[in-house]
Simulated scan of single mutants.
Amino acid sequence: MSQLNPTAVPQVAPVAIPVRQLAPWALFAALLAVVVTYFVGAEQGAFSLLSGTDVHEWVHDGRHLLGFPCH
């Protein structure tokens, strides 16, 4: 009967992700962050893109959470 070594742990090497594959996703995430920050922080103000108060009401608590004044 063979004995197994219970302390042997297989080594897993991290896989390198090329910057060329990561760059489009990083750009998309940055653009999405800018759009979300705009709608939470500046919409319904001097640079309003949409009329009415619907956007303001949807992001009202997020504005306060992130420190943007709204009233």
Rank of each mutant, 00 (worst) to 15 (best):
E43Q: 13
A29T: 05
G52R: 01
A16C: 03
T37I: 14
A42R: 15
G45I: 09
W25S: 13
W58Y: 13
V12S: 05
V40M: 02
V59G: 00
H60I: 06
S51M: 02
V55F: 06
V59M: 04
L31M: 11
P10R: 10
T53L: 06
D54I: 04
T7K: 10
P10K: 11
S48Q: 15
V34P: 06
T53E: 04
E43I: 09
Q21E: 11
V34E: 09
L32A: 12
L49W: 07
V15W: 03
P14M: 03
Y38I: 04
Y38E: 03
V12E: 02
T7M: 10
H60S: 03
P6F: 09
D61E: 06
A42W: 15
Q21F: 14
R20T: 11
V15N: 02
V40S: 04
E43N: 00
V55L: 08
D54Q: 05
A33E: 08
S48R: 12
A33W: 14
L32Y: 13
Q44H: 15
A29L: 11
S51A: 07
V15H: 03
L27Y: 11
Q44Y: 15
G52H: 00
L4M: 10
V19F: 09
V40W: 05
A46R: 15
V40F: 11
V34F: 14
L31W: 12
V36D: 05
Q21A: 14
A46T: 09
L31D: 07
S51W: 04
F47P: 01
L22Q: 14
A26I: 11
S48E: 13
L4F: 13
T37D: 15
V19M: 05
L4V: 10
V59C: 01
L27V: 15
L31C: 11
F47S: 10
R20W: 12
L31P: 01
P6L: 08
G45C: 04
E57G: 01
T7C: 04
G41M: 02
P6W: 06
P14R: 01
L32C: 09
L49V: 09
A13K: 13
D54C: 00
Q3R: 07
S48K: 13
A30P: 02
Y38L: 08
T7P: 00
V9W: 01
L31F: 14
A8D: 02
H60T: 02
D54N: 03
A8F: 13
